[in-house]
Amino acid sequence: MRTAVPAVPQYIIWRDERKISNRNTPPTTQTQTQIAHKKYNTRNMKFITTNFVKCAVKTCDSSVDAFPLQYSDCQIVQEELEYNPEFIVHMLERLEWNAVVKVARDLGNESLPPVKPEGLDPIMEDDQVILRDLHTLLVETQIVEGKMVCRNCEHIYFIKNSIPNFLLPPHLC
C-alpha cells in the first residue's frame, strides 16, 4: 500500500521550481504562473480551497464542468503555517484527487501522483513525510492574485488581494 506512494517530497514543487527557474529559464510560458518572492503577511486563498469552490451561477449547478474551475495567471506564495496532521488526514478523505491534480497542473505543477495517498495515520512516523508534503501543497501554497474560469459558462472570477470575488453580475443571479 505504502510503496505506491513515493517517499520523495513530490508535492513541494513550487518552492524548488522557483530556485531552478531563477537560475535557468523563466517559468513555463504555458501557464504563466508566477511565484511571489515577497513575504506576504495576510492570509490568502489556500490551495485546498480550490478543491471545494465551484461556479456560483445557478445554471452551472447541474453541470460537471463547473468543478474544478480553471486557474490562470496566478500569483502564488508559500507561507509557513502550523503543521496539523490530523486536519490533513481529516480533509484528505473529502478531497477529490483528480481535481487536485488538475488544478495543480493549471498552476504549473505536473508531478503530483495520479492516485490519492490513502491510509495515512497522523501519528505514524512513516507517514510524516507524505503528510508534510501534503501540508505544504494544500495549506501553505496559496494564491494571491489570479483568474478562475468556469469551464461550463466561462464566467471569470478574479482573485484580487488574496480574496476571490464571487459576486455575480445581475444577469447571472
Binding site: R43, N44, M45, K46, T49, V53, A56, S162, I163, P164, N165, F166, L167, L168, C173
Partner: peptide
C-alpha cells in the same frame, strides 16, 4: 486564519 471570499 481562514480563507476569505467576497460573495452574495
Amino acid at each position: 486564519e481562514g480563507d476569505l471570499f467576497l460573495a452574495d
